[in-house]
Simulated scan of single mutants.
Amino acid sequence: MKRRADLVTCMGCALSAAGATAAPLLWLSAPRTRRHLGSGFENEGMDPTVLLTELPFVVLGGAFVPLLVLTVLVRLVGRRRPTAE
């Protein structure tokens, strides 16, 4: 059982790191974000404060959503297995 817990912990850390990396990349590729960062016509709609207001939430969401999904999956799989006590 200890080995399974170590594997789940390692998978959680890897998913969290991948999510925290992928979420900002997806956020930066969105048309709305590109417009706010200066790719609008003559800087129309430019708002660099999105880096301070939205980016931290994107990184945190990218880190915690995969962990939440992993936790739910582990709990669902754990309930279906009969205990061998």
Rank of each mutant, 00 (worst) to 15 (best):
36 H>K: 14
12 G>N: 05
2 K>A: 15
76 L>F: 00
27 W>D: 03
68 L>M: 13
1 M>T: 10
78 G>P: 05
74 V>H: 02
33 T>H: 02
19 G>V: 05
36 H>T: 12
38 G>I: 11
25 L>T: 09
11 M>P: 02
59 V>W: 02
36 H>P: 04
11 M>L: 15
16 S>V: 03
72 V>L: 08
57 F>N: 09
47 D>N: 15
18 A>N: 07
79 R>I: 04
28 L>D: 01
34 R>I: 07
75 R>G: 00
2 K>D: 10
45 G>K: 06
18 A>W: 03
77 V>S: 10
12 G>H: 06
36 H>F: 11
46 M>T: 11
42 E>Q: 13
63 A>N: 05
73 L>P: 02
8 V>Y: 07
76 L>Y: 05
46 M>W: 15
15 L>N: 01
39 S>K: 11
44 E>N: 12
40 G>K: 01
67 L>I: 03
41 F>P: 08
76 L>W: 07
22 A>T: 13
60 L>Q: 07
54 E>R: 09
26 L>S: 09
8 V>F: 06
4 R>V: 15
83 T>H: 07
55 L>M: 12
61 G>A: 11
22 A>E: 06
69 V>T: 08
9 T>S: 12
84 A>G: 09
83 T>K: 15
29 S>T: 10
45 G>Y: 08
13 C>L: 14
62 G>R: 06
46 M>L: 14
52 L>M: 14
14 A>S: 11
79 R>G: 13
33 T>Q: 02
19 G>H: 04
1 M>G: 10
19 G>Y: 00
9 T>V: 12
51 L>M: 15
67 L>D: 06
20 A>S: 15
31 P>I: 03
40 G>A: 10
17 A>Q: 04
73 L>A: 12
12 G>S: 13
13 C>P: 03
82 P>L: 08
39 S>R: 12
56 P>M: 02
35 R>H: 14
27 W>F: 14
58 V>E: 02
52 L>Q: 11
31 P>E: 13
61 G>M: 02
